[in-house]
C-alpha cells in the first residue's frame, strides 16, 4: 500500500475543475471497505511464525507487514476469511463484528 496517496474523495464543483478527458486523478483509498464485513480477523501474534501467507493471499492488500509482523488494516479488510483459512498455525480467528 503506497503511503503517498491521499484517502480523499475528489468532488468537482463545476465543469471547469474536470480534466479534459476521463482520467484517474485520485485513489480509491477514500472508499473504506471495512464497513462491508460482518466478521473480522484477529491475529494471535504469540503463535505467529511469520510465514507471510496471510499477507500473500489477501485479495484486498489490507494486511501490512510492519516491523516483520503482519498487521490487519481494519479500514479496508472486507472480512473474507482467506487469511484465517490459510494460516498454517491457525493463529488468525474470525470474530463477529460488534458495532
Amino acid at each position: 500500500m503506497s503511503k503517498k496517496k491521499e484517502a480523499k474523495k475528489i468532488v468537482f464543483n463545476s465543469e471547469k475543475e474536470m480534466p479534459i478527458v476521463a482520467m484517474s486523478i485520485g485513489s480509491m483509498l477514500y472508499n473504506k471497505t471495512g464497513a462491508w464485513r460482518n466478521i473480522k480477523p484477529v491475529i494471535d501474534l504469540s503463535k505467529c511464525i511469520k510465514c507471510g501467507i496471510c499477507w500473500k493471499f489477501c485479495p484486498d492488500a489490507s494486511i501490512d507487514i510492519i516491523d516483520d509482523w503482519p498487521q490487519i488494516n481494519y479500514d479496508y479488510c472486507k472480512g473474507c476469511g482467506i487469511c484465517a483459512e490459510e494460516c498454517p498455525q491457525k493463529c488468525i480467528v474470525m470474530v463477529e463484528e460488534e458495532k
Binding site: 472508499n31 473504506k32 471497505t33 511464525i49 510465514c51 507471510g52 485479495p59 516483520d68 479496508y76
Partner: peptide, 30 residues
C-alpha cells in the same frame, strides 16, 4: 519462534491499493 525473520517469497512492492470494489474473497483482485 519470535526470533524468526519474515522472508517474503514474492516482491513486497504493492501497486494495487485497498479500497477497490471487488467482492469478498475475489480471486481476480488477488
Amino acid at each position: 519462534t519470535k526470533e524468526r525473520k519474515m522472508t517474503l517469497t514474492i516482491p513486497k512492492e504493492e501497486l494495487m491499493s485497498p479500497g477497490h470494489l471487488a467482492c469478498q474473497g475475489c480471486g481476480a483482485s488477488l
